[in-house]
Design a protein around this nucleic acid. Sequence first.
DNA 1: AATTGATTTAACCATATAGTTAAAACACTT
DNA 2: AAGTGTTTTAACTATATGGTTAAATCAATT
Lengths: 206, 206
Amino acid sequence: MAKKQKNTEDRIILAARKVFIAKGMDGARMQEIADEAQINKALLHYYFRSKGKLFDRVFTETIGELIDLLNEVFLTTNEFSQFINHFVRAYIGLIQKKPFIANFVLHELNRNPSRIVELIGTSGMDKTRMVAMISKETRPLTQVVTDPVHLIVDILSLCIFPFVARPIIQGVFFDDDHQAYDSFISQRADHIIELVNHIVFENPSI
Amino acid sequence: MAKKQKNTEDRIILAARKVFIAKGMDGARMQEIADEAQINKALLHYYFRSKGKLFDRVFTETIGELIDLLNEVFLTTNEFSQFINHFVRAYIGLIQKKPFIANFVLHELNRNPSRIVELIGTSGMDKTRMVAMISKETRPLTQVVTDPVHLIVDILSLCIFPFVARPIIQGVFFDDDHQAYDSFISQRADHIIELVNHIVFENPSI
DNA sequence: AATTGATTTAACCATATAGTTAAAACACTT
DNA sequence: AAGTGTTTTAACTATATGGTTAAATCAATT
């Protein structure tokens, strides 16, 4: 073997991720990925035969992160209020670290919807248990949440959308001041948790 | 003049819109737009010098629709509960008719954030009035909504995200049954209105 | 009939890009 | 030193694509 100065494959994946997330599958250029990884195109193809294969790898890993996090939070909590707390904080934390991840997934999602459904299907996410937990906890409590799925979608929407629409929110409400936007986002988790608790338990707990 | 069988420019715009929305700026092909408009590439360039110009036109018109709707709803309502009602129904109705519009705007938004901020800036949207209205109505009423901007973002999130994430929601919660998803969406407006009324007025009105 | 603008045809150019290839250099192991 | 897998270099192919061009055609106006 030779000059394995650092794991080249990892460098490539990292670079590919950066470029793909920033520009999407169509907008990304293999040359740019190679430059970003500080190697040349030939070596890039030496590791990953084609752009498609490289993209698949990046995409699978990226969405895997999201699913893993969901699963982890989901499996370590029993009751709903605890779940909300963990989930909202964990998800917002993750997206805050990698702000473009949500946009990336959503865009490629619509370019190739079937793949994601597959991925999620094989990821072992137990949607039934999730729905059951919410039903059990909310049934006797509130008239707002008649369908658990609405509640789940509510929570996802409230967590993810503010990142996806960042340029609009920052531009319109904060005069393009990214610090103001950041401080808005850091209040976001608390706000969502309060909101959800309010509609589910009809009092703002915690 | 000759064979102006129908307004060609409109046909082009319509076709361009379809293709751009489906594939994004990068993924779209001028040839495909020409085919879709049932003309040839030469004529396409005869009307719109470049892909960029055509895209600008489509994008501006598309986001203009959204902004116009917001303005209209906003200017024809005085009190907040009325505003919520109009806004939620109008927005969900619009996106339901053109489901990919949200994804399109959000994706291109992140490709070129500054343009949208400009567009919104010159569109005459009066964000201050909006915030003022919400502040006035919510100040004495609730402990959940401490910042009007959070509430606005909440409403936008709840309305738009379910469309943006359609493949996930449909795949995970409805076993890819698009009818089930559609019926979910048609309950969506009522649910959001109830939810927002609940957190703002602490009772589910209307 | 002559003019004019809209539209087609079809070839063409320039460029960007994914992907290939072959040879050499390199670093590490044996 | 020989061998092995990694990396570079650099040229190359094939193709797709945005955009152009020139000539012809077509339909309506004058």
